[in-house]
């Protein structure tokens, strides 16, 4: 008990080097190239959802949606062929960084795990589980226990990666629907 009495007040004031338990499997650049191998170049653009679009997405998804989004556009022959969002969700208590790619036909290309920071639940990296996202669209449920199978023992990570991917795909679909991805 004495140990905790000392540590907890100290926690409020002390500083320490920040650490990240990250195992970074892919960079954002590597992920975009994996998802759109046919792309000749990528452009990074910043988009801002207006309040109406943002709140509509929040209502639809049941998830918080921020206004500012940085999107990686895949180009081939000077034409946009798809878009990628790199984002974070929480697994059990730490961030999972993932990338979700959407073709301009509105079909999900792929979801990649870029970094996983916990010692349990990393089964979401399995290619077979991530392959469930491919071919789905904004209109798909994209929910564990519906059109996505769970991984027993990695339920939180599965649910949260699915939430994040559903949000990224909805944002990309929203931008695509208003012609922003041209």
């Amino acid at each position: 008990m004495a140990r905790w009495s000392i540590i907890i007040p100290a926690a409020a004031t002390a500083t320490a080097p920040s650490a990240a338990f990250a195992v970074e499997y892919l960079s954002g650049d590597q992920a975009q190239a994996t998802i759109f191998p046919e792309a000749e170049q990528f452009q990074t653009r910043e988009f801002h959802l207006d309040e109406k679009a943002r709140s509509a997405l929040e209502s639809k998804l049941g998830l918080p949606v921020r206004a500012k989004w940085i999107v990686r556009l895949a180009l081939r022959g000077g034409v946009i062929v798809g878009a990628v969002i790199v984002d974070d969700v929480i697994g059990k208590f730490d961030r999972i960084t993932f990338a979700a790619g959407l073709g301009l036909n509105g079909v999900v290309r792929e979801v990649e795990i870029l970094a996983y920071r916990e010692s349990h639940g990393q089964e979401v990296r399995q290619a077979a589980w991530r392959a469930q996202f491919a071919g789905k669209s904004e209109s798909s449920p994209l929910r564990v226990g519906d059109d996505l199978s769970n991984i027993s023992g990695a339920t939180l990570s599965c649910n949260h990666v699915a939430d994040g991917a559903r949000r990224s795909i909805a944002v990309l679909a929203s931008l695509r629907s208003v012609g922003a991805l041209k």
Binding site: S18, A20, A22, E24, G28, L63, P64, R66, K68, W69, I70, V86, D87, D88, V89, I90, K92, F93, D94, R95, T97, L114, A115, N159, H160, D163, G164, R167
Partner: peptide, 17 residues
């Protein structure tokens, strides 16, 4: 730790601090 969809994005917060 309780929010499954944080506002931070790795595009805004570098992965390697």
């Amino acid at each position: 730790a309780g929010d499954s969809a944080p506002e931070q994005s790795p595009e805004q917060v570098p992965l390697a601090l």
